[in-house]
């Protein structure tokens, strides 16, 4: 009985600690992403070439996504990959308006990722 209880509470503690770490990790990475992306979006609005900055974001994302794969549905990660590459290509071609549309989409997508972890009725059901 004692052994069972110890195992039970250990697993529960593991799940709670894991949830806490998951939330913290995903939120911090997405927050970092949002801040970097905000600069690129602002520059795109002013029709400034920001492809170097976007390339840096792409490199950063490629490194970060390895761990994020453990927490985020892989389809979302694939969508983020696609939108960064599309925005970068459009920006390199000087099509800032189209690039801006893709960047806004990307921003919207990454803002929605932490929301999927919120403990609310919609997410539970």
């Amino acid at each position: 009985m004692v052994k069972s209880s110890v195992i039970l509470f250990s697993v529960l503690a593991l799940i709670i600690a894991g949830s806490y770490f998951e939330n913290r990790y995903v939120n911090s990475k997405i927050e970092e992403f949002k801040q970097e992306l905000a600069v690129v979006i602002e520059n795109a609005k002013n029709e400034d070439d920001n492809s170097e900055k976007l390339e840096d974001i792409l490199k950063w994302w490629k490194k970060s996504k390895h761990i994020l794969h453990a927490f985020i549905p892989h389809n979302d990660i694939r969508d983020v990959d696609g939108l960064i590459v599309q925005s970068l290509t459009l920006m390199q071609k000087g099509e800032y308006t189209f690039a801006l549309t893709q960047l806004e989409k990307l921003n919207n997508l990454i803002m929605g990722i932490p929301e999927n972890f919120y403990f609310n009725f919609g997410n539970i059901f």
Partner: peptide
């Protein structure tokens, strides 16, 4: 399904283990 992180399955299986232990106790 490769689009679902394996962690989701692991947590669900652990949750089942927790309920089993809890019900047994």
């Amino acid at each position: 399904d490769l689009s679902i992180p394996l962690l989701y399955g692991i947590v669900a299986v652990l949750a089942i283990f927790v309920f089993h232990q809890l019900f047994t106790i």
